[in-house]
Amino acid sequence: MNKFKAYVRKNIVFVSILSVFLVIILGIGIFYITQNQGTTKPAKDPTASDKTPVKKETNISSFSGHFNGEDSINLIWSVDEQKAKVQRLELYYNKNILADVSSLLSYELPLSTYQLTTGTNKFVLKAYLSDGKVITKEADVAVDYVLSPSNTLTPSGDGFLLNFSYKFGTANPVGIPSISYTYGSKGNAAAAKVVYRTTTTNTLDSIFTQAKTEYFLDTSKLADGDYSLNIRYFFKNVDESYDFTIDFTVKKNSGEPNGSANPQPSETPSDENSNTDENQ
């Protein structure tokens, strides 16, 4: 201990300078540590979400429709109402208002009543909100180009008259249907022949036209008996077809033949043993 004191006395200047350096280094170290502690970011909670919650706004969540296959279009919709309330809901067609549907979730539109046509019909649902905004949503509904198809079979001479009746949109002509047929479940009608005769039309109003296409089913080369044919009428212009099954009886030795037609759609005829009249 005495030696240490003696060393310090002899080297007082050196020891003083060394002490100053140590104090400075210690001060710098303390300053650095305190500064880093002040700027260190807290550990991130892994369960916390980075995304700010999105405020949902009132919107028309769905709007669609379909043609019922007969004579009307059915529209349905839903509205997701948030802070802004729906004050009025209107249905439009071709920029014209059809109805105020504020209290409804669906609407049926007969084609003739609302002058809807074949092909694509565009509807707009418009909602007026309490915050002054107006939101809209569109729906396209396709209507068959050929409507109300029906088929009749009438005895005539050595065969039958096939009359195919249908409607179409006056603005969307469908042309004359071609006919193809295959043998049905009764008899072998390979010798039968179907020939196009004529098509007549009658304009019902500014929207629809009624048409009737007539064919002749020649059974003169068939033996007496019961037969059936699967008939398909095809509209090339609009790529639509309609199928029927006809049953008929040939009785050459007992007067006029007789027959009947099934007005309901039949199973799709196969291509095997098929015949076609293109009506050109």
Rank of each mutant, 00 (worst) to 15 (best):
T170F: 10
T245S: 09
V194D: 01
A191Q: 07
N172E: 15
A171P: 02
L229G: 09
P177T: 13
K193C: 00
D226A: 05
V238Y: 02
A171Y: 04
K221C: 04
S178N: 10
S228R: 10
Y227F: 10
A223P: 06
T249I: 15
K252A: 07
V250R: 14
T201F: 05
T203D: 07
R232E: 15
I179Q: 12
K221W: 03
E240G: 00
Y196V: 11
D205V: 04
D218A: 00
Y181C: 10
V195Y: 04
F208M: 02
A223N: 15
S254H: 10
G255N: 05
P173Y: 03
N188G: 14
I246Q: 13
D205P: 11
F208H: 01
S241W: 04
D239L: 00
K212H: 05
F234S: 11
V250F: 12
A190E: 15
R232H: 05
G225P: 12
F244H: 09
I231V: 12
L217Y: 04
T209S: 00
T199H: 06
D239T: 01
P173G: 04
Y215M: 13
V174I: 12
I207K: 07
Y196K: 11
Y196G: 08
I246F: 06
A191P: 00
T219G: 03
R232W: 06
E256I: 08
D247I: 12
I231D: 14
A211Y: 00
D218T: 03
I231C: 05
S178F: 06
F248A: 07
K212T: 10
I246N: 13
A189L: 10
A223K: 15
I207G: 00
F235S: 01
T199P: 02
G187L: 13
A190Q: 14
L222H: 04
S254Q: 13
N202T: 08
R197N: 13
L204N: 09
T219Y: 02
S178Y: 11
A211P: 01
K236G: 04
Q210D: 13
S180W: 13
F244L: 02
D243V: 12
K221M: 09
P257C: 10
F208W: 01
V174A: 07
G184C: 08
L229Q: 09
T245I: 11
Q210R: 15
D239Y: 00
T198R: 09
F248S: 11
V238C: 03
N188Q: 14
I176Y: 13
K236E: 12
Y215N: 14
K252N: 14
Y215P: 09
T182W: 02
F248M: 08
V194T: 09
I176Q: 13
F234R: 10
K186R: 15
L204S: 05
T198K: 10
